[in-house]
Design a protein around this nucleic acid. Sequence first.
RNA 1: GGGCCUAUAGCUCAGCCGGCUAGAGCGCACGACUGAUAAUCGUGAGGUCAGAGGUUCAAGUCCUCUUAGGCCCA
Length: 1050
Amino acid sequence: MYRKVDAKEPAKAREQRVLSFWREHDVFRESERMREGSPEFVFYEGPPTANGRPHPGHVLTRVMKDVYPRYRTMKGFHVTRKAGWDTHGLPVEIEVEKKFGISGKKQIQEFGIERFVQECKNSVFTYEQTWRELSERLGYWVDLDNPYMTLTDDYIESVWHLLKTIYEKGLLYKGHRVSPYCPHCETTLSSHEVAQGYKDVKDLSVTAKFRLLDPSEVARVFAQGQLPDDTPTYILAWTTTPWTLPSNVALAVNPEFTYVLIHDAAAKENYVVAEGRKEHYLTEERRVVTACTGAELAGLRYQPVFPYVTVDGKKHVVVTSSHVTDESGTGVVHMAPAFGEDDYRVCQENGVVFVNFVDLSGHFTDTVSDFAGRFVKDEQVNVDIVKHLAARGLVYDKGKHEHAYPHCWRCDTPLLYYAIDSWFIRMTAIKAEVIENSRGVHWIPEHIRDGRMGNFLENLVDWNLSRSRYWGTPLPIWVCDRCGRTECIGSKAELKERAGRLPQELHKPYIDDVRWTCACGGRMERVPEVIDVWFDSGSMPFAQWHYPFENQEQFHRLYPADYVCEAIDQTRGWFYSLLAISSLVKGMAPYKNVLVLGHVVDEDGKKMSKSKGNVIDPFEAFDLHGADALRFYFLVNTQPWNSQRFYHRAVAEAKAKFIDLLQNVHAFYALYAGIDGFCPAEHHVPVAERPLMDRWILARLHDTIRRADEALAAFDATTAARQIQGLVNDLSTWYVRRNRERFWAGGMEADKAAAFLTLYEVLATVAKLIAPLTPFIAEELYQNVVRSWDETAPVSVHLCDFPVAEADLVDERLLDEMDWVLWAVESARHLRNESKLKTRQPLSTLYLPQNLEDVLGKFTDILAEELNVKEVAFVQLEEIARPELFLNLKEVGRAYGKEVPAINQAAKQAAPQVMAAFAAEGKVELAGRVITRDMAEIRYHAAFPGLIDVSGRGFVGLNTQLTPELIEEGFVREIISKMQMMRKEVDYEVTAKVVFAAYGDEEVLAILRRHQERIARTVLIRDVHFGSMEGDLTKEWDINGKPLTLTVKG
RNA sequence: GGGCCUAUAGCUCAGCCGGCUAGAGCGCACGACUGAUAAUCGUGAGGUCAGAGGUUCAAGUCCUCUUAGGCCCA
C-alpha cells in the first residue's frame, strides 16, 4: 500500500508524475469547482506578451501569483484565475518588421497594412506554447484555456466603452505632444529607442538677432541713459537647429536672471544677453550699459526673423521660463513650439500661438515659401537659412557645434523633436482622487504607497493615449472633415447605427474604412491613431468579461481585486493603468492588496539580460532542480520585494535543505509503515497519552500551522516558508533521529503505534501546509501517506482545507522546555568533542544545574540516550566546580604595572565571597587595587574527573572517568556499529536475519561472546560463527585499536 | 538632475518596540553518528553591522550627512 520512496529520484521525474496525476483528475478545475458559491478571493492576472520567451523574473512573478490563490482556495475561498494575453503594441510590430526585413512606416505601407496587421496577429502567440509549458512545469494554476486577449473584438469593444465613458466626462481631449520622431520611418520613438541612437555630430549653429519693437518700452525697461532711444536693440538667441527659426514665435528668458544691455559703439546697436554670458559678447568696442531682470523683459515684442508666422494671436514676444539656463548661448532661448518639449510647454503656459511648418516626412511646407519642400535636417538647408538671415543683417555669429544628437536606431536618420497630434486623458483633473484611491490600497511593501507610486502620482500628467502606429486598439473617435465635429463610439452597436455596417474586425485597416455622413454633409472619418497598450491592460477588470455587454454578474462579483502582483517596473505600467482607468470610470481603486516584486538578478547582483548573456533558462532550472526547489528558493530566500539573486547553486541548496530533507523523512516513514503494514485508522492513542517527544513535535507542528497561517494571510509567504522549513528541519534532525528505534521495535505496542501515528499526523499535515508553496512534493507526500490507505480523503492535497492550528496541542511550556533540552544536548556534545571520547563510548554522568531539574527532569531518558551516559545528575555548580578569579594580565598590567604579581597572587587566593562579590558587582578590591570587569573573569574548573562548561544559560558537566564496565560496553557498541555498516554495505533488507563470522583479537572476541545475545538481537543475527567463513562481505576492522575481521552472509 | 530601495561573516540572508556576549544556512577545517546513509549531527576559524556625525543610561536598530550598488523617471 505504501510506495517505497526513492529519495534520490530526480525531481523532474517526480514532478512529471504529479503533473499527469493532476491532469488525470482535473485537479485545478476541481479546486475551483468545489468552492463555487463560496466567498470570492479576487485575483487579476497581469497579461504577459507571448511573443517573447519567459525570463527567470517571470518565474518569480508566477510563484508569487500562485501561492496566495492556492492558499485562499484551501482556506475556503473561490478564486477565479483567468489568464490573459497582452497582444498589441510596438514590440509586436518590430518583430514583424524584423521577420520581413522591413522598417518604418513607408515600408509598412508598401508591405500592405492589412497584411502587416495580420502578420502581427500571427506573431503574437509565437511563444504561447512555451508560456503554457512554463506555467505547467511551475505548477502555476491559471486558466489558460479561457484567457482574455486584448486583440479580440469583444475586448476592444469593452475598451471602447471605457473610452467613451471617459469622453463623455469631458476628460478625453486632443492636443499635441512633442516626441522624438524619425521623419524617415515617420514614427515617434520611445526614450529607450532614443537612448540607443546618440551620435556625436557637428551641426551648424547660429546666434540670431531679434530686434525689439517699441523703443519707448525698451527705454523704460533699460534706463539706457545717454543712448538715443532709436538705437536698435537686439535680443540674441543661439540655436543649433537653424531650421526651427522660420517657426519662431517667442523668446524665453529666465525670470531670475539678470540681463545686460551691451552697446556696440561701432555698429551703433545694442544687444541683450544674460549677465552670466556677457564676457562672450564684450569687445573693446562694446560695453555694458545697463541691466534688468528677466522678469522685466517679459512682454517685450520683437520683429520676427521670418515672415511666415501669420496666424492671429500672441506671438513674437519675450516670455519667461525657469528652464532657461546660462550655461551656453546667450541665456535666451528661441521658441519653436512644434519642435521642442520645453518650447511647447512654455508657449502653452504663456498663451503663445502654435505653428508647425514641417510635414510628417520632415520637409518644409509651402508656408515656408523660401525653403518649401526641402528636408529640414539637410545641412545645405540650414546653411541657406543662415545666409538668408545674414543677408538681412540678422546674424550675430555662426559656427559649428559638436554635440551628441539622437538618430533613429533603425535607419540612422537624425531625429526631430516634433509635435504630433495626440489624444490625452485629463488625469490632472482627477489627480486628488487617484491619490486618495492609491492611499487606500495595501501596498506591499508599504513604502511603495508614499514612495514610488506616491511620488509618481504627485507628478501626474495627462495620459497621452494615442500612438500613430498600426497594431493596437483603434481610438474610436471619428471627426467630420468639413465641420470638425467629433464623435466617440462606445460599442459595435453604435458604430453600426452610424455607419450602417461593421468592419470584419475592429482593427486597422478595416476600421478606417468605416465612414458616415455628418449632419453638415461632411464625411465622418476615424482619426488614424491606435491607443497606448497600457490602456488595454489597465482595462482588463472590465474587458476580460466583455463588460458591460456581457457577464455583468461576473464583473460585479470580481471587482475590485483582492490581490494583484507584478514586478516593481509595473508601478507606472499596469498598476498605474489599472488605477487610472478604475478611478476614471468607477471612482475607486481596482485592487486592495498589491504585492510589488523586486527584480531577479544574477549571482553578482547584475540584472539578467540577453545582451549580458547571464540569463538562466527557467526550463534548465526546472530540469536540474525541479519546480518545487525553484518555488521554495524564491519564497524562502528573501522577501520578494527585494531583488533576488538567482543561480543554480542557490536553488540546489534550497532543494537540499527542504525538499530533500522532507523527502527523506517521507522515505523513512514509507519504509517502516510499509514493513509493519501500518494503517493510521487502526490505531488510536490519545495525544495526552503519547510520549513527550510526540507531544513536543505535535506542539511544534501546530505552532507552525498558526504562524504560517498568519503569515500567509498577511501575504508574507517568506515567513511562512521559513517557519515550515524550521519545522521540517526539527522533524528530521531531532524527532526522527531521536525516535528511530521506536519504529523498528517488534510488534505494535502502544509506544510504537504512538510514534507511527505522530509521524503520520505530522507528515499528513505538512503536506497540506506546504501545498500552496511546493505543490508537487505536497501531492507526492499526500498521495503516499494519506491517500494510500484512506480512499475517503480528497483525491488531491489541493482539494483539502488548510490545516487548522489546534490551540490545545500547542504546549508552549513543552516547546520552551525542549529548547532547554537542545541547549543541554549541544553543550554536552561540545564537551564530548573536547574530551575526544566518541559518543559510542558510554560515560557515567552528565551534570546539569539543579534549578533546571523542573524543566529537564522529565527528559533525562532522552538526554542519557542522546549523549550516551548512564546517569543525569542535577547539582549545584559549587558541588562539582571550583571557581577561579582569572585575571586578564594585559589589562591589569596596563593599569597597575609592576603590582601585577601581588594582585595575581591575591586573585588566586581569593575567598569564595570575594568572587561572589565580583560576579555580582563587576568589581572587587585585590591587594589594595580595584579590579573591574574588563580585568578579570570568573572561570570554573571541574572538581571531578571530567569537563565542565559554564555559559550564560547555565552549566553542563561531563564525567569522563571510564570503568571496565563502561569500556566493555563501548566495545559492544563499536562491534554493533561495524556489523550494521556491513549490513548496509551489502544492502540486506532491513528485516533480514544474517550470519556473522568473527576472528581476531582475543579480548574483542571474548566481549563478543559475553554479549552475543544482545548483539544478535540488535543486528538481527541468526548465528555468530567464531572463525573464518565464506560470505557476502568480509572486512577487517580496528575496534578501539584492536583488530577484528568480520564476515557476513545472508 | 529628481525619487525609491539596498548595504550585517568568504557567499546568501535573519536580527521585533533601541536592551544580555549580533545569529542561521552554505562554504572551509576538524570531529562524530549510523537498521534515513551520496543522508545526518557537533565543534572551530571567520564581523570596522558601508563611512562620519548626532539623539540616548544604552544604537546593527532612531535622526542627519556621505559613499557604493540596484531600480524608476527626466
